[in-house]
Amino acid sequence: MANLTVDLANILTSTGVKASYGDPVELEGTTIIPVASSWFGFGGGQGLEDDESDSAMNGGGGGGASVPLGAYVKQGDSLEFQPNPIVLLCVAVPFVWVAGRAVARIVRALKR
């Protein structure tokens, strides 16, 4: 189990930057570098071995996720970040909902 942990740590440290920043793409004089937020998680465990059973209960698992945030676009000497509009909407919808609820409560409190 210890070797597996060391192997996973070595793999993730070497792919960390590539997981968040993709390979640059050249297209008609424009360089595009995709940007994403990535995270990984791993865990493992071992159950207690009782006298009635000959085997211990072992388990483990892991996973990861990546959210595309946008891309850096370089044209000539200018470099700018182009955000992903879908991610902006995913962030904005809960924010707008919470802000609307807060405004509704303030208006209701002021009416009293």
Rank of each mutant, 00 (worst) to 15 (best):
N3Y: 12
V6T: 15
V6D: 11
N10V: 14
I11N: 04
L12F: 10
T15L: 08
V17P: 03
S20K: 07
G22A: 05
D23S: 14
D23H: 10
P24N: 09
V25A: 07
E26K: 09
E26H: 07
T30K: 10
T31N: 04
T31H: 01
I32A: 01
P34M: 02
A36P: 05
A36W: 04
S38I: 11
W39E: 14
F40L: 00
G41C: 00
G41T: 00
G41D: 00
G43I: 06
Q46N: 10
Q46F: 08
L48W: 06
E49T: 09
E49K: 13
D50C: 12
D51Q: 06
E52S: 13
E52F: 09
E52A: 11
S53P: 01
D54L: 14
S55A: 15
N58T: 11
G59W: 08
G59M: 09
G62R: 00
G62Y: 00
G63E: 03
G64R: 00
A65C: 14
S66I: 15
P68W: 02
L69A: 10
L69H: 08
K74A: 15
L79W: 10
F81P: 00
P83I: 02
N84E: 02
L89K: 12
V93W: 04
P94W: 08
P94E: 02
F95C: 11
